[in-house]
């Protein structure tokens, strides 16, 4: 074929673009969209750890509480003294720099350690999520040690998603959580330099712990406010939000009309202006 190089480029570019777009489109979104476009298939989606609306684990308790092994207390104490006691004191009774941890319960301790918020990098700013410094066994040992110091507080919850309802979770999430974490769970800045963090990295246990213990600026949701079943429902919905149904295509970070506007103007109008530049040409 005697395609002129320039012209060949002109044809090949849109073609390549189109093919690439369709291939990535299919590859990226076939899962979510398949669940959406085929009624019935949604109940057996295997791509998410969440079972859509399913109640396969029904009958079992929605949340069980972890019984910490007393034999790990010694290890926990060692770790606590090494990593935490400089601020919280050897017996976790608190110092001028950090609060008393006694009687807060294993769930509180576990949330702060397992999300990497503690030990704190910089005591002046809001604790941020980062990789935990410990192994899970070490975390549980610290939890066991601190909760052995004084009774009280919630234990570490383990959520049985099979016994939870996704759609009930949506209702509860939108009532209780969306006001700060946004309806898609990305989080946003609050007043006074703090922020509601994104829920995307959270594990089921961490979500349940946060709901019950209200870390930082987050309100506390006790059993009189949300039942155990309801907490499990919320956890299930948050896990869904971590891999939501992006039937429409690229999710744009789920931050709503702000990014949509930029895409519409820069990519939509922008590419059309380039096309117009090609068609209309410049001043002659």
């Amino acid at each position: 074929m005697k395609f002129g190089k320039k012209l060949g480029g002109r044809v090949l570019f849109p073609v390549a673009l189109g093919v690439a777009a369709s291939v990535t489109g299919m590859a990226l979104f076939s899962q979510g969209a398949a669940a959406a476009t085929t009624p019935g298939s949604s109940n057996s989606s295997s791509t998410n750890s969440v079972t859509y609306g399913g109640t396969s684990g029904a009958g079992k308790a929605p949340i069980t509480y972890l019984k910490l092994d007393p034999s790990t207390i010694a290890l926990g104490k060692t770790l606590f003294v090494e990593n935490c006691s400089s601020c919280h004191g050897d017996t976790a009774a608190g110092t001028s720099r950090a609060p008393n941890l006694q009687g807060l319960g294993a769930a509180t301790i576990d949330f702060w350690i397992s999300t990497g918020r503690m030990p704190l990098a910089d005591p002046t700013v809001q604790a941020t999520e980062k990789p935990s410094r410990f192994t899970r066994a070490q975390e549980l040992a610290i939890d066991a040690y601190v909760s052995s110091l004084a009774p009280g507080g919630p234990a570490i919850p383990q959520v049985n998603l099979g016994a939870a309802s996704l759609s009930a979770g949506q209702g509860l999430f939108s009532t209780n959580c969306a006001a700060c974490h946004t309806i898609t769970g990305v989080g946003d800045a609050l007043a006074g330099g703090v922020y509601a963090p994104s829920l995307y990295p959270a594990t089921t246990t961490q979500i349940a712990e946060a709901v019950r213990t209200g870390p930082g600026n987050m309100p506390r949701f006790g059993t009189g406010n949300l039942s155990t079943q309801q907490v499990a429902d919320i956890v299930k919905y948050v896990k869904y939000l971590q891999h939501p149904n992006n039937a429409g295509g690229i999710g744009l970070g789920h931050v709503g009309p702000v990014t949509e506007g930029f895409v519409g103007i820069l990519i939509g109008l922008g590419s059309l202006m380039i096309a117009g530049y090609w068609i209309g040409g410049r001043a002659r």
């Binding site: 777009a21 076939s30 085929t38």
Partner: peptide
Amino acid sequence: QGGQTQVEGALLFIALGGLGFGIVSWGK
């Protein structure tokens, strides 16, 4: 076959884009 939003979008892009590109090139 039941439709798929992303494939529909990509194919519409090529179908309409090919038409547009062809007609404009012809006219230009």
